[in-house]
């Protein structure tokens, strides 16, 4: 074998090693991070942790109010953003002709919105919802701010999903004498539902994980909220506060982070089950 061939073979081996090295590093980093979270956090978690209010700034007690606040804020965000997103997607896919400049404008504006940093949403929400509309630091302000943030995610998912609905379904519904709005609500939207739910998974994940946009909208108050106009601290904000502002709060921050990750996984799992169930219900033979 020539020296040249040997050298080439060595290059191949080096490159191959590097290519396998990258995922190895990534896996290691993720494992390290998760191991840390579990290692430091798991010890604190028990039923009481999930069902009681925090004491001594979070260094004792539990996270029940944060769980409730997180659920409420995310629910508000979805309740506001989902109809808007789906409505916009239907408008783009089913109503406006593909060449319409209105469609291009809507799409582009949502693209830019998707790119806005979350802290900018925080500024916006603080100013508009808390100050201008007089909602103050409240779950409502936080939820509405998150709604703006997840709107483009939900919209894009819904749009792609509706585009994927076979034209046969669309024309079939119309040929059966369904008025167009019924064809959309009774046939096309149900056909696109799995994709819409996948988008919802992304959006809810993003909303549950959000901190920067919430600190100045839903606020820091760690009491159990009793109304939508109450301020409430979400899990992510709690993690932030414990790690930055509470000495000796690290273990509790990790515990809360672990709960947050668990909650994200459970939500994603449930939604993906729902999506798969719907897909199977309508499965087309390949």
């Amino acid at each position: 074998m020539s020296i040249d061939a040997l050298r080439r073979r060595r290059t191949a081996r080096v490159v191959d090693a590097a290519v396998w090295g990258v995922p190895a590093i990534t896996v290691a980093a993720l494992a390290w991070l998760l191991a840390d979270v579990v290692w430091h956090g798991a010890g604190q978690i028990d039923l009481a942790f999930l069902t009681t209010a925090p004491r001594s700034a979070g260094r004792a007690g539990g996270i029940a109010p944060m769980l409730v606040s997180t659920a409420i804020v995310v629910a508000i965000a979805v309740a506001v953003a989902l109809p808007l997103a789906v409505g916009t997607a239907v408008l783009l896919v089913e109503v406006l002709p593909p060449s319409a400049s209105a469609g291009r404008w809507i799409r582009r504006s949502l693209d830019i919105l998707a790119g806005m940093p979350s802290i900018v949403f925080g500024l916006f929400g603080n100013l508009v919802f808390c100050t201008m509309l007089g909602m103050g630091f409240s779950l409502l302000s936080g939820g509405l701010t998150l709604a703006c943030m997840v709107l483009p995610i939900l919209m894009r998912a819904a749009e792609e999903s509706l585009r994927g609905v076979p034209d046969g379904c669309r024309r079939g519904a119309l040929a059966l004498g369904m008025p167009r709005h019924r064809a959309i609500t009774a046939v096309i939207l149900p056909c696109g539902m799995p994709g819409i739910i996948d988008g919802l998974t992304l959006g809810v994940g993003r909303a549950m994980a959000e901190t920067a946009a919430l600190v100045f909208t839903s606020g820091y108050v760690d009491r159990m909220p009793s109304a939508l106009t109450d301020s409430g601290r979400t899990l992510a904000v709690h993690v932030f506060d414990l790690s930055m502002n509470v000495t000796g709060g690290d273990r509790w921050a990790y515990a809360t982070a672990l709960v947050l990750i668990g909650l994200l996984l459970v939500t994603a799992g449930l939604l993906s089950l729902a999506s798969r169930f719907l897909q199977r219900k309508g499965a087309h033979k390949p």
Binding site: C169, R171, A186, V187, G282
Partner: peptide, 28 residues
């Protein structure tokens, strides 16, 4: 809409909706 209920159309490619058989027939 009324016309299409009087004049049905069958497509080249079968296009059942991706629902159950019953739901396909219930809809119209």
């Amino acid at each position: 809409v009324a016309l299409r209920r009087r004049v049905g159309l069958i497509f080249q490619r079968p296009n059942p909706f991706p629902f159950s058989i019953r739901h396909n027939l219930d809809l119209p």
